[in-house]
Computed example of a mutant assay.
Amino acid sequence: MATSVSTQDPFKYTTIAHSGHHYCSPLSSETAASLLAALQLQAGALVLDAGCGKAALLRDLLASQPVRGVGVDINPAFLAEAANAWTASNPGDGRLTLIASQLEQHPLPAGGYDAILCVGSTHALGGFEPSLALYRQWLKPGGMLLVGEGYWKRPPSNEYLMTLGATEDELSSHAKNIARALAQGFKLRLAMASSDEEWDWYEHMYCQAVMQYAASHPQDPDAPAFRDRARRWHDSYLAAGCSTLGFGFYLLEKS
């Protein structure tokens, strides 16, 4: 029997599921530090975090380099967490601007961005290639784009696709992601992929957060459906996802 969900908050589940994550993607702090260091930005550079979530990657960048950041997302809970975390760690530092908006509707800087981060958020602009095309317009000449995108390690089963709510043509391979970026006029500076350990940790924390919420909020009418959804998702990851779905990081330069 299906369990009904009463929530009117479309972001409630993902907010709960990512409550224990620093990055809302299969990314370790060590890998993140390597990717950010490879950006090699000038002091004062303006960086967009597109679909920023908690803006953790952008906040880490601002903490390590003297640049300015703009984070755009539509989840108010994530943005509030980002703002609180930044203010607590950097009182009086106004280099971070957070905007609640659809990506294509946020106010663009007249001169463009020096760099754009988009990790796991290309769906907000219709997919990988449409996002690359638009970000290329938003970047200054020579600007850098760090994009995180899923890919198939092997052809997905129909059962796994049903769990994802996806079709096979929504993703390609790691190599084809690179080829698609080059076809959009970018130069490849670096390509990396999430490790099995990064995936396992991300998925474990995702499921654990939902289970803990359901156990501690028995009066929430959404809790049973959330618990069942997380369990099905994690079972699917263990059965097929860990061997089927990859996540790549592509550092690209606008040529």
Rank of each mutant, 00 (worst) to 15 (best):
L171H: 07
E81N: 10
V119Q: 11
V5C: 09
A56E: 07
H234S: 04
G185V: 05
C207N: 11
R189K: 14
L171T: 01
R136F: 08
F247A: 03
A63K: 06
R229D: 02
S195Q: 02
G148P: 06
V119W: 15
A45K: 03
L252E: 03
G92I: 11
S195N: 05
A88T: 02
A33I: 00
A80S: 14
S19Y: 12
A32P: 00
A55R: 11
K54F: 02
V210S: 08
L48C: 12
A50V: 11
A215Q: 14
G126T: 03
Y202T: 01
E104M: 15
D9W: 14
P109N: 09
A2T: 00
A240R: 08
L46Q: 13
L57D: 02
Q208W: 01
D60R: 14
D196A: 14
G112R: 12
G185R: 04
G112I: 09
A133E: 09
S89T: 05
L251R: 04
M162E: 11
L134S: 06
A88D: 03
Y206E: 04
E159V: 05
A175H: 07
T122R: 03
S236W: 12
A191V: 12
S173D: 07
K54Y: 03
S64W: 04
T87G: 11
E149K: 04
A83Q: 15
H21Y: 07
P26Y: 07
S216N: 10
A32L: 05
P109R: 08
F249H: 13
Q137D: 10
H123T: 08
S131G: 09
A191T: 06
T3V: 08
T87N: 13
L188C: 11
S25E: 06
D114Q: 11
R95M: 09
A33H: 06
S89W: 07
L188R: 13
S19Q: 15
V210L: 12
Q208E: 07
Q212K: 07
T14Y: 13
Q65T: 11
K176Q: 15
M144N: 02
R231D: 05
L125I: 03
A209V: 03
P156T: 08
W233S: 03
D49S: 13
A77W: 12
V5K: 06
R68Q: 15
A183E: 14
V72G: 12
Y160I: 02
L79Q: 10
I16C: 14
E81V: 04
T163Q: 03
L117K: 10
V67Q: 08
Y13D: 00
W201A: 11
G71K: 07
S255D: 06
V119D: 05
G142Q: 15
A56L: 10
L79R: 12
S255M: 10
M211P: 00
T7I: 10
H123F: 15
N84Y: 13
N90W: 03
F249E: 00
Q42D: 08
P66W: 14
L164R: 13
